[in-house]
Design a protein around this nucleic acid. Structure first.
Lengths: 152, 152
DNA sequence: TGGAAAAACCGTAAAAATTCCGGTTTTTTG
DNA sequence: CAAAAAACCGGAATTTTTACGGTTTTTCCA
């Protein structure tokens, strides 16, 4: 599950924070040839260590100023209730992430909307899904840290 | 704040889900020349719509099987207490995200660790920061949806 | 322990993508 | 409606990626 050597780890560290680095730039930093770096990255993708490469946008610039975390509690935890909730919730474009959780509620959703009016519209749609007991909403005041890189 | 035309929006949509598309591939999809796409992307970066391009790793493959959301409540909300907490919490490599929140607690942290032992070690370090009242931990059982793309 | 097999590495050349440039068409604006 | 600005384009120059053949290093087991 982790047969990566030092060079692999360093490549992943670099690409996690900046995937626009060229193979040449990486080869300088890691004291390897361009061909070696290229082959390493090819394998890291093929083996699934790198799932995808994406552009991260400025959420305020694209008019998603309101981020909410919504805690959802379901009526019961039968396989049917769980999977039908999951099936429906992923359809909402506002839902960027959805995690099933341990603890006093069942799911955490990360919601991105333009403003509170848009969140309200979403909330009404969400809260009327079958088998939902409660939805608690918490809103982001400010981002202290916002990273997609895993600490490796 | 959003003087983007249809072509800009489509470029951002595409790059949010796959930043490895070549300018040529994008130019096919959007019926524009390679030069035009190139100039558009250059401007989207320069103007800050695209903050960065990153590789997204498979967290289990890089041995971060345990993801937690930790809710932190502070003793008070003086500028000093808030900013010194923020200053310290961002130093933890396990903390991928930190948001100041509205509601019944002050911060949400997203924590990535190898296992519960590693989380426990982190938890003890976190809980001993000054001015913390409570830390509540919730753990991810499964990922239903996991997206970095904003709905635009 | 020695030697074969496998893996990692490298330089170079070919292919492809990015970047730059000059000029044309379309849109905006006073 | 004419001038200015913006968007667009093809093609050339530059850079990067990708493929290839061969060398060095590491692994492993007889």
């Amino acid at each position: 599950m982790m047969d990566l050597d030092h060079t692999d780890i360093e490549i992943l560290r670099l690409l996690q924070t900046n995937a626009e680095l060229t193979n040449k730039e990486i080869s300088y930093k890691l004291h390897k040839s361009v061909a070696t770096i290229h082959e390493r990255i090819r394998r890291l993708k093929e083996q699934g260590y790198i799932r995808r490469v994406v552009a991260i946008l400025d959420r305020k610039k694209v008019d998603k100023s309101l981020i909410a975390f919504s805690h959802v509690l379901l009526k019961d935890h039968s396989a049917n209730t769980l999977s039908s909730f999951e099936k429906e919730v992923v359809k909402f474009p506002e839902v960027m992430e959805c995690f099933q959780m341990t603890g006093t509620f069942d799911f955490i959703l990360r919601i991105a909307t333009t403003d509170m009016d848009a969140y309200h519209i979403f909330y009404r749609k969400l809260a009327t899904l079958p088998n939902i007991t409660t939805v608690q909403s918490f809103f982001v005041l400010s981002e202290t840290k916002s990273d997609t890189a895993y600490p490796i």
